[in-house]
Simulated assay, not measured.
Amino acid sequence: MAIQTSKLSDPAVRAFVAAVNAHDRDAFLDLLTPDATMSDDGSDRDLDDWIDREIFTSNGHMDVDTESDGGRALVAQYRNDTWGEMRTAWRFTITPDGHISRFETGQA
């Protein structure tokens, strides 16, 4: 059973999932530090290219199954128009002021 987005523990992660699911690129980018980085399956990627391709032009959507590490680690069913649905793991690095400086994702 998926965890409702509004019930996720970490405010930045909660806002990240909400922005992905609302396809709100501006809200998504507002959550990130200016120098934010990310990786997919262990390889660093160009953040702007990746989010456009994997989230915003392909109707990305996350249904969170579990959270750990105070809400900064998720296992979610992720789907988009390119790859279909897959079980994914997400880890977030959050700055003291509540922004995301890094996220890592990959198959779970």
Rank of each mutant, 00 (worst) to 15 (best):
residue 4 Q to K: 14
residue 7 K to T: 13
residue 8 L to F: 06
residue 9 S to P: 06
residue 12 A to M: 06
residue 14 R to Y: 08
residue 14 R to P: 01
residue 15 A to S: 13
residue 16 F to L: 01
residue 17 V to F: 02
residue 17 V to Y: 02
residue 18 A to P: 04
residue 20 V to M: 01
residue 21 N to Y: 04
residue 23 H to D: 11
residue 24 D to Q: 05
residue 26 D to R: 15
residue 26 D to H: 14
residue 27 A to E: 04
residue 27 A to Q: 05
residue 27 A to W: 05
residue 28 F to A: 04
residue 28 F to G: 03
residue 29 L to D: 05
residue 32 L to D: 02
residue 33 T to Y: 02
residue 40 D to W: 14
residue 41 D to K: 11
residue 45 R to T: 10
residue 46 D to M: 06
residue 47 L to F: 08
residue 48 D to I: 13
residue 49 D to M: 03
residue 50 W to C: 01
residue 50 W to E: 00
residue 53 R to T: 10
residue 56 F to Y: 09
residue 56 F to S: 03
residue 56 F to Q: 05
residue 57 T to G: 07
residue 58 S to L: 04
residue 62 M to Y: 04
residue 65 D to F: 07
residue 66 T to Y: 15
residue 69 D to T: 09
residue 70 G to E: 10
residue 71 G to S: 06
residue 73 A to S: 15
residue 73 A to P: 12
residue 76 A to N: 04
residue 78 Y to L: 04
residue 79 R to N: 10
residue 79 R to A: 06
residue 79 R to P: 00
residue 80 N to Y: 04
residue 84 G to E: 13
residue 84 G to F: 12
residue 85 E to K: 10
residue 86 M to D: 15
residue 86 M to C: 10
residue 86 M to A: 14
residue 87 R to W: 10
residue 88 T to C: 15
residue 89 A to C: 12
residue 90 W to K: 02
residue 91 R to C: 09
residue 91 R to A: 13
residue 94 I to R: 01
residue 96 P to R: 11
residue 97 D to I: 07
residue 99 H to S: 13
residue 100 I to E: 03
residue 100 I to C: 04
residue 101 S to A: 10
residue 103 F to D: 00
residue 106 G to R: 03
residue 108 A to M: 10
